[in-house]
């Protein structure tokens, strides 16, 4: 101790200061990462409607939501939604949906993309909607062939005791360049953009946190086509918050 020029008090102060500094560096990194984790395009709230609907003898309030799925950022701009920075296929205008609990949700998805084949043909089925079907340009389907699909919208969550299970999976009919087999591309009335208007309804239960993603392999050039847009947060995947 003799040769040290530091008093015990100074030493303790420097220790506390250094500890506080280190902790604040770590906290700073945390805050930064947390900031990067914010929803890229904010939250998308379902619009509540005045009327109610009776499903299986129970009265549900109604709410609706409209999304689009775009082949690239150029298409996204044409629809008014500003695409994210990579020129990737993406859902918009946001990937974080907020839905009211115990509500009859009607979702409309405008699909503008082409497609090839599903990895897992299982996801050609319509699952979890009220009618068991999806309405594509006015026609009801309970499933689509594995090679006629552009994307799917698949909602799921972690099974746990604190929230109700919720599973919805809907295949979106792909847009054909030429109409050789009768799948006619539609002129979307809202966007004046060629594509399909896909509508389906499902019931939310209690409040909870869920995720959704696309099960159609659309991360081009990557193994199993599930890299790139498929593995980047906010493009073909997102969150669903059901609020009480």
């Amino acid at each position: 101790m003799a040769k040290s020029n530091m008093t015990a008090g100074k030493r303790a102060a420097s220790a506390i200061l250094a500890t506080a500094l280190s902790i604040s560096v770590v906290v700073g990194v945390g805050v930064t990462l947390n900031k990067f984790s914010a929803d890229p395009n904010g939250k998308l709230f379902a619009t509540k409607e005045a009327d109610t609907i009776n499903v299986d003898g129970k009265e549900y309030p109604k709410a609706s939501l409209t999304m689009g799925v775009y082949a690239d950022t150029e298409q996204a701009h044409a629809d008014g939604f500003t695409g994210m920075k990579n020129d990737w296929v993406q859902y918009g205008p946001s990937n974080h949906l907020v839905l009211p609990a115990n509500t009859y949700i009607t979702m409309t998805i405008h699909g503008y993309d082409g497609g090839e084949e599903l990895n897992n043909p299982f996801f050609g089925k319509v699952m979890g909607t009220v009618s068991g079907t999806v309405n594509i340009d006015g026609v009801e389907y309970d499933s689509l062939p594995y090679n006629k699909i552009q994307h799917t919208w698949t909602l799921h969550g972690i099974p746990q005791s604190t929230q109700d299970p919720l599973f919805v999976s809907v295949p979106l009919l792909r847009v054909e360049e030429d109409d050789e087999i009768g799948w006619v591309p539609t002129e979307d009335p809202i966007t004046n953009f060629k594509g399909h208007t896909i509508t389906f309804s499902f019931l939310t239960k209690g409040a909870g946190e869920y995720v959704w993603n696309c099960e159609f392999p659309c991360g081009d050039d990557t193994y199993a086509k599930f890299g790139a847009a498929m593995s980047g947060y906010g493009y073909m995947s997102g969150k669903v918050t059901v609020t009480a």
């Binding site: 990462l33 990067f36 984790s37 946190e209």
Partner: peptide, 9 residues
Amino acid sequence: GGHFVTAPI
């Protein structure tokens, strides 16, 4: 519930 960072982070 995983709200601190997103899944890829």
